[in-house]
């Protein structure tokens, strides 16, 4: 029977060497909450597993000198939640990461894995897109940076090149008057997968929205950055007309399918509903500080 080699390198260079050498037979193991499930169900049968949890750069959270954050790709949701300041600065990103799976899964699952799994419905992805997060990837040809929204290529696929590993997320510093939020629609109250997910990040000055980003998940082959929705909010007081315009932009951005998780009509309608609700939460957070 097929054997699996398990490697747990201590450094990134070592990991990249092993991962690149193994070629398409290799899979990266962070929390394993997707990979191990896929292996058990027979969806994937890797010949080599490279566990990245022993690499310090990939498992630490750092506050950068400019006031931003650098989060290792393998940092678990539970660890991120325990960070003293992260949740205060990026509550929307944190609530999205903390929606991945159950309490037990939170001890393992990471935002990096959530992104690289390539699911259009990954909870952390729209929130990271809204946050304007940038990822560092490293491969045999060195390091490069990508915007989060550039990473997914389609269901189960990413734009990472062969041999490249997602190393970390970089979140920008927050101007005063900023807030973010993530909401998803699920038929249950937890332990479910998003039918629609929306992340919104806003900056508000003197009651006027001066910056906005909207990330939209589960309504297209990849999570989307919805720039027209952001544009509809910027320069407004987030009044009903602006919200409706932004909701319409979200609905227009949807390219969903009818599937077991929801109908096309339902997903499109829900995208608009959630946009308004998510903006309301983000705006409240932005102005409460």
């Amino acid at each position: 029977m097929a054997e699996i080699r398990y490697l747990a390198p201590r450094s990134l260079d070592e990991a990249i060497g092993a991962f690149a050498a193994a070629g398409s037979a290799a899979r990266i193991l962070a929390g394993g909450t997707d990979l191990l499930v896929q292996m058990r169900s027979g969806m994937v049968a890797p010949g080599v597993i490279v566990d990245i949890k022993k690499i310090p750069e990939m498992t630490t959270i750092e506050e950068t000198s400019d006031g931003g954050f650098r989060i290792g790709a393998a940092v678990s949701g539970a660890v991120l939640a325990e960070h003293a300041r992260f949740g205060k600065v990026w509550p929307g990103v944190l609530e999205a990461v903390n929606l991945i799976g159950s309490k037990q899964v939170q001890g393992r699952a990471s935002a990096g894995g959530n992104l690289c799994n390539g699911s259009p419905a990954g909870d952390s992805v729209p929130a990271m897109i809204a946050a304007g997060a940038v990822v560092t990837v490293q491969g045999p040809n060195g390091r490069r940076e990508m915007k989060v929204e550039e990473v997914p290529a389609g269901p189960g696929r990413t734009n990472l090149k062969p041999g490249e590993i997602l190393v970390s997320f970089k979140l920008p510093p927050r101007p005063p008057g900023s807030g973010d939020a993530y909401l998803r629609m699920i038929p249950r109250t937890e332990m479910d997968i998003a039918v629609v997910g929306i992340g919104v990040s806003l900056t508000i000055k003197d009651g006027v929205c001066t910056a906005a980003r909207v990330g939209l998940g589960a309504v297209a082959p990849t999570a989307l950055l919805v720039e027209p929705a952001a544009k509809a909010l910027i320069g407004t007081k987030l009044d009903a007309a602006a919200l409706e315009k932004a909701a319409e932009a979200c609905r227009a951005a949807c390219r969903p399918i009818d599937d077991k998780r929801g109908t096309v009509a339902y997903r499109i309608k829900t995208a608009g509903v959630l946009l308004k609700r998510t903006v309301a939460i983000a705006a409240k957070r932005a102005t409460e500080k």
Binding site: P187, R188, T189, E190, M191, D192, I193, D259, K260, R261
Partner: peptide, 16 residues
């Protein structure tokens, strides 16, 4: 069957 698992066969969870 398109939803042969507990993720997409939606039984209630405690918090429901």
């Amino acid at each position: 069957v398109d939803n042969a698992g507990f993720l997409d066969y939606r039984m209630p969870v405690c918090s429901d």
